[in-house]
Design a protein around this nucleic acid. Structure first.
Lengths: 220, 220
DNA sequence: TTCATATTGTGATAAGAATCACGCAACCGG
DNA sequence: CCGGTTGCGTGATTCTTATCACAATATGAA
């Protein structure tokens, strides 16, 4: 087994996340062992790609046999850092925030939302999910410290995204997931991901507008 | 030179979408002309990257001067196919669906949601946004035809995502944006984008897990 | 006009990611 | 325990994307 410390393609990380989902589905379907062929079929990735992705991190399969379904899922979770609880706060309890608070898959992947914050005084005190009550943004700092939260999710309107990011950083958060449709800026030492839902739709529009091109060929 | 026959990188399309946002911001800030340097600064992309991205589609700037802020935004919108209305339906009016229905940026980019559908009988008839009333899923086919809808957005639970996709395809939709956390399958001639919010968080977890800490190697 | 300056557009090059192809390990039936 | 078959792991190869560097072109001043 070799643990390389070469740079891992971001695309690989993205795929690993989907492998987990597919593996859990296949596990539910009764497959105790899966081949890269079967897994690839299930999540629409080439078998070689899967093996290559995994090879960045070690050897998880058995030649001539395949991968243990459950065990591979566990291994990938460990690779992604999903083998422990990520304590998370969420700022901006609009519909999107509410949607994320209720998103069970988050919990299943180890993300526990311990605080929900909103600027609207009328919302303060409302119970949003199991035991989480909406707090004013002014309480952000306290809660982050008390709960030792490491991740912050931004679901406020674009206009307030940057100030929210600043508050999270100030509070001691080290990772931020930003859903507001502008790119926020954070210090070097903070890990940030901007998620642009709008650009996904834009992308779809582009694809639809230019569909004259031939689809990529499939392997036979 | 006009649009070449070359394949455009998907990453380029994604960036074009963000350029629009940045250009509109800069326009609001009073810049009538922007250089690739300024735009790059604003949206955190290298100037060369911007020029290269644009060069796939033509020449939009003036050497020694820069780009007209408004006009470049317009041009990019045209490239992405955002220069006309995309008639859209949305299935699954949970919190996420509701969030998208209220998302003003969608409308600004030309996406008009003309129908909202849900399987829950209790929700039928509720007004969700300007004049849109929640309809039963059984009405999907009719509405798609009547409104000539081209795009379908899936915001139903994972368990119902595939059947929803099938219904959309059956109804005559040509493009689908799927937010359910499983990859749905559609016929060749349908354009599909799967958006995985979960994988964004997973990705963040990975980045956080591997920031300063070098992976310890195990001896077997 | 001509020079100095700004900034685009793009071919060449480098970096990065996906695919291929094959060695090799594990299982199975006889 | 032997030969056939399956299917992983990975170096080599191909394909894709990003970066670089500079010629080309516009502006403004003298």
């Amino acid at each position: 087994m070799k643990q390389k410390d070469v740079k891992i393609p971001e695309a690989t990380i993205k795929r690993l996340s989907t492998y987990i989902n597919c593996l859990e589905k296949l596990d539910g379907d009764g497959y105790q062992v899966v081949s890269s062929d079967l897994l690839g079929e299930s999540c629409q990735v080439s078998p070689a790609q899967i093996r290559k992705d995994l090879s960045y991190f070690g050897e998880f399969g058995v030649r001539g046999v395949g991968y243990g379904t459950r065990s591979l899922a566990e291994q990938i979770k460990k690779i992604l850092g999903l083998d422990h609880i990520w304590t998370t706060v969420l700022v901006g309890v609009g519909h999107l925030g509410q949607a994320l608070l209720n998103f069970t898959a988050f919990r299943q992947h180890g993300f526990r939302i311990v605080g929900a914050f909103d600027a609207d005084p009328a919302k303060i005190g409302t119970v949003v999910s199991d035991g989480v009550v909406i707090e004013p943004v002014s309480a952000l700092d306290d809660t982050i410290h008390r709960e030792q939260a490491g991740i912050g999710i931004i679901t406020v309107p674009a206009a307030n995204a940057q100030e929210t990011a600043d508050l999270l950083v100030e509070g001691g958060i080290t990772g931020i997931l930003n859903f507001a449709p502008i790119k926020v800026r954070v210090p070097e030492n903070i890990t940030l991901r901007n998620v642009s839902i709008l650009s996904e739709l834009d992308n779809l529009a582009y694809l639809l507008s230019n569909r004259t091109r031939r689809r990529s060929r499939k392997k036979s």
